[in-house]
């Protein structure tokens, strides 16, 4: 078994009497990108927290993530307001990266996310989209084997979203990791993922599973093959 493959088996989670996850099982292949697609509030964020070890499931278990470094792009940027953009990256990196490589690594990822100009700015001075890119630079710069992302491209306009997705895929190709991300946007899922799992709303169980075989380079927002799959998945999402 590859080092960064991991498996969820029979994950169940309730908040009080509200059951959000009802026996979810799936395997995420090493260095693949998996999208969890479902309506808002269907327990996707809870599932990511469980994979990250931030929450424990009521039943079931996650195997294969023990002690592996994980990056997590939270739904909100979670930056420290009193540190500059570069210092925010250094905050999570300095205990894990040799000091001599720190500045170079920070600058590289800031440049990749096109926010070099804000290197020494404080987060409060940035727009929401810029802060999100800082958080993404932080998640990518962190030397993790597993990357979890919660609605990473939401609230971005279409062209910026597409630009960031392209950039993200380039970085991922240069330094592949096992990626799980959640979204409610079928197009986002189809542009990025090797596999898409569609979840039902509360409690979340797997509704369908799609393997996307179209090479990533051929995936454009307007590609016909993607649009057909998007229609199919959208129909599944709307049926509920």
């Amino acid at each position: 078994m590859n080092q960064s493959e991991f498996t969820l088996s029979g994950i169940t989670k309730s908040y009080g009497s509200l059951r959000v996850l009802a026996g979810l099982s799936l395997t995420v292949k090493a260095n693949s990108i998996v999208a969890l697609l479902g309506p808002s509030g269907c327990g996707k964020t809870t599932l990511l927290s469980i994979i990250a070890g931030l929450k424990s499931p009521d039943q079931g278990q996650v195997t294969g993530v023990e002690d592996k470094p994980i990056s997590y792009l939270f739904q909100e940027p979670r930056l420290l307001d009193w540190l500059t953009v570069a210092e925010n990256l250094a905050f999570v990196l300095k205990d894990h990266i040799p000091r001599s490589e720190l500045a170079e690594r920070i600058d590289y990822y800031l440049e990749q996310m096109a926010i070099t100009a804000y290197r020494d700015a404080y987060p409060r001075k940035l727009s929401g989209g810029q802060r999100q890119r800082v958080a993404m630079a932080r998640a990518l710069a962190y030397p993790s084997r597993i990357l979890l992302m919660d609605e990473p491209f939401k609230s971005l306009d279409l062209s910026l979203k597409w630009a960031l997705i392209t950039r993200f895929l380039q970085l991922w190709a240069a330094d592949p990791r096992t990626v799980v991300f959640v979204t409610h946007d079928p197009k986002e899922a189809l542009l990025l993922a090797d596999e898409v799992y569609v979840l039902t709303p509360k409690p979340a169980v797997l509704q369908s599973h799609h393997v996307i075989n179209i090479p990533r380079l051929e995936r454009k927002p307007t590609a016909l093959s993607l649009l057909q799959l998007e229609q199919k998945i959208t129909a599944e999402l709307i049926r509920d």
Partner: peptide
């Protein structure tokens, strides 16, 4: 949420103290 972020990224206590808690 910040504490959770620091925990996830395995920020060591001295760094968390100096860079997060004190400010």
């Amino acid at each position: 949420r910040l504490k959770e972020m620091a925990r996830l990224y395995r920020v060591r206590f001295p760094t968390a103290l100096y860079r997060m808690y004190l400010p």
